[in-house]
Simulated assay, not measured.
Amino acid sequence: MNEKNGFSVNGFVASPVLALLTIGAVKSISIPFQVADLLLIVTAAILILSWAGFFMVQPKQARVLTMFGSYMGTVKETGLRWTIPFFIRRNISLRIRNFESGKLKVNDNQGNPIEIATVVVWSVEDSAKAVFEVDDYESYVSIQSEAALRNLATSYPYDIYEKDEVALRSHPQIISDALSQEVQSRLEDAGVKVIEARISHLAYSPEIANAMLQRQQATAIIAAREKIVEGAVGMVDMALEQLSEKGIVELDEERKAAMVSNLLVVLCGDQNTQPIINAGSLY
């Protein structure tokens, strides 16, 4: 079922017309009643009943019209409107809304238990689908958003374990786009448009939080050490090359090895080195 325009006219135009017709029909009825007056009585009764066809449409809202179980269309024009009084008019909001899920406990694709939550910004795009395709579209949005979040969390790791890997913590924009597509595909049947979906909370579960924090710290230390060693090797190579080119000192292989060892200890050490000055020998 797809949305279509429902029949309605401007209420400010319909009200004076109905007023004139109703007054004219009532004044035309003679007393005592004649046989010809029966048609005027029926006409006046229909005109009086037609006043129940007025309704108001607020900005960013719509009225879904039904009659005898059939969908007759949707009115989105704002202001005072008039339609057939036998239509049942159901109000539905087209405004932008937020849904924030609770903290869900799931496992990432590495099997690590994590806590994750999301915020989904959405609005009704097709009023007919929202009203007739699902029983309660607001409940449908919340349940399907949480289901999409669970599926996303199990598809990615919490953190990067391999090079060029997409992770929940390190690639927020990619994860947000993937979550938006996942939620939109689930809410398409309900006539809902997903404007934005993003992760609002992400953390390891308390029972493994300390262990995973130590793992992150160890990974950071190893990465830092790799950079330090890489820089130290480059500095040692540059020092030996410049000493050789400028002829400052001639070093044999044994002294080069000792110098390399000393420089690496100085450059890669955690603590500041204590210099030792060789003042020469007494003999």
Rank of each mutant, 00 (worst) to 15 (best):
P16H: 01
L20A: 15
G24H: 02
I29R: 08
F33M: 11
T43L: 08
A45I: 12
I48L: 12
S50G: 09
K60Y: 08
G73N: 01
T74R: 03
V75R: 01
K76W: 02
K76Y: 03
T78I: 06
G79L: 00
T83I: 00
S101G: 07
G102H: 04
G102F: 02
K105C: 09
N107H: 14
D108F: 06
Q110V: 11
I114A: 06
E115G: 11
I116S: 04
V121H: 04
V124K: 05
E125S: 12
K129H: 01
D136S: 06
D136G: 02
Y137C: 00
V141Q: 01
A148F: 03
S155Y: 07
S155A: 14
S155V: 08
Y158V: 03
Y158P: 03
Y158R: 15
Y158A: 13
I160L: 13
K163I: 12
H171I: 09
Q181D: 10
R186M: 03
E188Q: 06
K193H: 06
L202M: 05
A218C: 03
A223F: 06
E226H: 11
V233S: 01
V233W: 02
G234D: 12
G234E: 14
M235Q: 12
M238A: 15
V249A: 15
E253H: 10
K256H: 06
M259N: 08
M259E: 07
N262T: 14
N262H: 14
L263A: 11
L264P: 07
G269R: 07
N272L: 11
N272A: 14
Q274C: 03
N278Y: 14
